[in-house]
Design a protein around this nucleic acid. Structure first.
Length: 129
RNA sequence: CAGGCAGAACGGCUUGUCGCUCGUGUGAAACAGAACGGGAGGAAAGUCCGGGCAACAAAGAGCGCCAUGCUUCCUAACGGGAAGGGUUCGUCAUCCGGCGAAUACAGACAGUGCCACAGAAAACAAACCGCCUUGUAGCUUUUGCUGCGGGGUAAGGGUGAAAAGGCGGGGUAAGAGCCCACCGCUUUUCCGGCGACGGAAUUGGCAGGGUAAACCUCAUGGGUUGAAAGACCAAAUAGGCCUUACCGGUGGAAACACCGCGGAGCUGCUCGUUCCGAUGUAAGGUGGGUAGGUUGAUGGAGGCUUUCGGCAACGGAGGUCCCAGAUAAAUGACAGGCUAUCGCGGAACGUGUUCCAAGAGAAACAGAACCCGGCUUAUGAUUCUGCUUUUUUU
């Protein structure tokens, strides 16, 4: 039980080009309401095994404070549950970029979102093979 | 008691676990970990004004356009603020006046436009009815009445949001600032005030409608853009520019041929042989510039506090503090406790207060994005102050 939960700057997907590459060349996507996940397997030298982009669209959440809250929920869920995925990636020597968008209407309970994220992560790990 | 308006304060605290970001320090350096310290708001919002800052050639002038519009003051500046003045409205008061609210509050003898409907007439005034007077015809004993005309008249009626000072008296044929008193206005002077303006006297018998949030005139201010500004570093790829190397001889006008030279292939090597050797190729350099990064960028018209000046806005002096700096964008999640507050229910006094109290329990608007000063808008089961309105009960 010596798991460490973290989500640092390096693991954030940023910059114009990587983001564009993720959406134009994506290897697949998984959608379970209220989360949509796009992912891209790649072999970049410098990148960490897992990079992620959290999205809450301005169109859906007009107020900045609401957007912030949704993103925080996403980040917290990711932080707590990304450990297994990261382990799997390093053991299989693969690298992946992710985008997680929240497309629900209102902000839901974090427990609910957590369950959905877990099932998405499971499917992701299966699709690695 | 309830509502409204204005102003001020607050916008939870705390423990544990897991995290984020910046800084310090450790370290040769990088990464990670551990340690310590900082980490959203009163509006961070709207982007409506004003300024700093930056670029644009000069940042000047003219035209245009836009904004502002009682006075004085405050301020870096403002369309903001303070203190006043005028006007209008409400309310209290017998009056003088007090209190409160609103105020886009320069100019309508510079010019142009507009003023519906109603009304006789709506702007160098106007005569519908009425009133007075008069000519004429008729009637009548006469006073007079009626019809058709002329003249006078703005007191009365009627229309209108508004009818050319108001009201009273004199005067008159009837009327009229025609004359007079008071009120209002105009001229001039004096007094008070820095000034807006106020007060007093005097003068003219009375100027001449409203609308400038219609154009316009006058005064004052504004160059434009906006941190996605701007400055710097700059990978890869493509292209630009520069330098160097890429041969020499003979013949020939040239193509080219021959001999040697260099490179590549055939081969392990040599010989030999084939191909190539200048609008191109290779190497090096260089400037622009994209991704990306650094900076701009957080010490400032700074906060808190004491004191002095000022009615106040605010200013001077002293002390003290350093207080977010992210960038696909940090300041969070979970669990527990506490408090403000609400409170099922109960008790006491003596009928709306106090006390006890199961339980609920921080819920609103909202997230810095270069920085300041304002304005506006959003917001609460919070607290206080002032003003005001309505209802009920006594």
């Amino acid at each position: 039980m010596d798991r460490r939960f973290f989500f640092r700057k390096e693991e954030r997907l940023s910059g114009l080009k990587p983001v564009q590459r993720l959406f134009t060349e994506k290897t697949g996507s998984i959608f379970i309401y209220p989360l949509r996940v796009n992912f891209l397997l790649h072999q970049d030298e410098d990148a960490p095994p897992l990079r992620v982009l959290l999205l809450a669209s301005k169109k859906r959440f007009r107020r900045a404070n609401v957007r912030n809250r949704v993103k925080r929920v996403l980040r917290e869920v990711y932080r707590k549950n990304s450990h297994d995925l990261r382990e799997a990636l390093t053991s299989k020597n693969k690298k992946i970029d992710l985008s997680i968008s929240f497309v629900g209407e209102k902000d839901m309970g974090s427990h609910e979102v957590e369950q959905i994220f877990l099932s998405i992560a499971e499917r992701l790990m299966k699709s690695l093979d």
